[in-house]
């Protein structure tokens, strides 16, 4: 698959292949992520040990990490959003990490998936703001004290700025995952192409191989970082929705 026709084929890894009609490999990995998260939380917390073992420790650390983040960012009223943010964080994190398993599929590398996730966040923050503040929510689009003559400019700008959250949230995750996996594939193909030359090529292949080792480590960092960024931006938007300033 990597070196068919001696060209670099970096994008075939993102192709959807239907397993059953209407059920693609992307859906399969979403299902695996859901099962893995449930298994981690349910099986990990099964012993209920006072001194946690490794699996229970992992479950507790991830729980406390997100709990601390929601508590710190959204504030005390934000605790009711913890289940939502936790689910979102774990789903994105497991999607990114499952993509690091060789031969697997990264469902967070599709804009359709990340945009849907961002849209869910967007609808939630708008609904929360409307539920808490009612009509006062629309004051968000026109800061008090601004001259009324500027309203035709300020209001569209604020609305576009508000709507652009969906785009930036989804594109950030999608672009990071695509860029990382394309880089991995390109440098891996360099190794194979150079190695197939034999002799001096094998020596030359050492450089992209070493780079790929570093890139794999970097990709694990990105997998965690992007899940964190997605969750923390959700928290910041929730904070705006709850406190409205």
């Amino acid at each position: 698959m990597a070196v068919e026709g001696k060209t670099i084929d970096a994008l075939s890894q993102f192709e959807l292949t239907p397993i059953v009609a209407g059920f693609t490999n992307s859906n399969l990995y979403m299902l695996i992520a859901g099962v893995a998260i449930s298994a981690l939380m349910v099986l990990g917390m099964q012993p209920r040990a006072r001194v946690p073992g490794r699996l229970q420790g992992l479950a507790e650390v991830s729980y406390q990490f997100v709990h601390g983040m929601v508590d710190e960012q959204v504030g005390h009223e934000g605790r009711k959003f913890f289940p939502f943010v936790f689910t979102l964080f774990m789903f994105v994190l497991f999607g990114n990490l499952l993509g690091m398993v060789p031969y697997s599929f990264t469902f967070t590398s599709h804009i359709a998936v990340t945009f849907t996730l961002a849209l869910v966040v967007f609808i939630l923050i708008t609904a929360v703001a409307l539920a808490i503040h009612g009509m006062k929510f629309f004051g968000y689009f026109f800061p008090e004290g601004a001259p009324i003559a500027l309203a035709p400019i300020i209001i569209p700008v604020e609305i576009i700025s508000y709507l652009s959250r969906v785009v930036s949230l989804s594109v950030r995750l999608f672009a990071n995952m695509v860029a990382g996996h394309v880089m991995l594939k390109v440098f891996a193909t360099f190794v194979v192409l150079l190695g197939s030359l034999g002799g001096i090529g094998i020596i030359g292949a050492a450089a992209p191989l070493a780079l790929n080792v570093a890139l794999v480590g970097f990709e694990f960092l990105v997998a965690f970082l992007q899940a964190y960024v997605f969750a923390i931006l959700t928290c910041i938007y929730l904070h705006d929705a709850v406190h409205l300033h």
Partner: peptide, 12 residues
């Protein structure tokens, strides 16, 4: 991040 913010606002 800054570039992405500009680009996404432009897209919208």
């Amino acid at each position: 991040r800054a570039g992405l913010e500009v680009a996404s606002a432009l897209v919208v």
